[in-house]
């Protein structure tokens, strides 16, 4: 019994080691959005395509959409852009852009050069705290799935890859479409 007790520090060490080893593999920036299961916040924003045209929450309802937060200033947005094009064109998922802290001219050049997966783009300029802030967006890119009733069902902070699109987003979208 006494002898076994001598192994206690080793046991504690192994336990803590396992705990910290797991911590190394966790992504500290990955965390669930507080908005999951919550209705999309109310908003009224102009579009990049037509600054006179205002879109509000009711205009999005009735279909499952991907809401993608992007800016031409954001390097990771260039990286995920092909996957967004794929989502829109190959899988026919309606993708709505939220052009975040960007400049109008730069955003338009971005879409011309990279291709345009977006049905339309909501615009939230630097200094505004509207939809993006209410959604808890803290950078770009971020992607949400919003169901037909306007409830947020999924959130991704960071780059959307083909693998994430096929393994996570597509099944979720199909699930909420039915």
């Amino acid at each position: 019994m006494k002898r076994l007790l001598l192994f206690l520090p080793l046991a504690i060490f192994i336990l803590m080691g396992a705990f910290f080893l797991r911590g190394l593999e966790l992504d500290p920036s990955a965390r669930e959005s507080a908005l999951i299961g919550q209705p999309l916040p109310d908003f009224r924003l102009p579009t990049l395509e037509n600054p006179q045209r205002y879109i509000s929450k009711a205009d999005l309802q009735g279909q499952v959409v991907l809401l993608n937060v992007w800016g031409s200033w954001c390097p990771s947005c260039y990286q995920e852009h092909p996957s967004l094009l794929k989502a829109a064109h190959e899988y026919q998922i309606p993708v709505i852009g939220l052009n975040y802290k960007d400049e109008e001219a730069a955003a338009k050049v971005y879409l011309q050069k990279q291709g345009n997966p977006y049905a339309f783009n909501l615009v939230e300029r630097e200094g505004e705290r509207k939809l993006a802030f209410d959604l808890g967006v803290y950078g770009a890119p971020e992607t949400f799935i919003v169901d037909a009733q306007g409830v947020v069902r999924y959130h991704l902070a960071g780059v959307l890859t083909d693998a994430i699109l096929q393994q996570e987003i597509l099944p979720k979208v199909r699930q909420w479409q039915n």
Binding site: R31, E32, S33, A34, L35, F133, D134, L135, G136, Y138
Partner: peptide, 8 residues
């Protein structure tokens, strides 16, 4: 703030 960004 918690409502938007979570407990974090």
């Amino acid at each position: 703030m918690v409502q938007r960004f979570g407990d974090y």
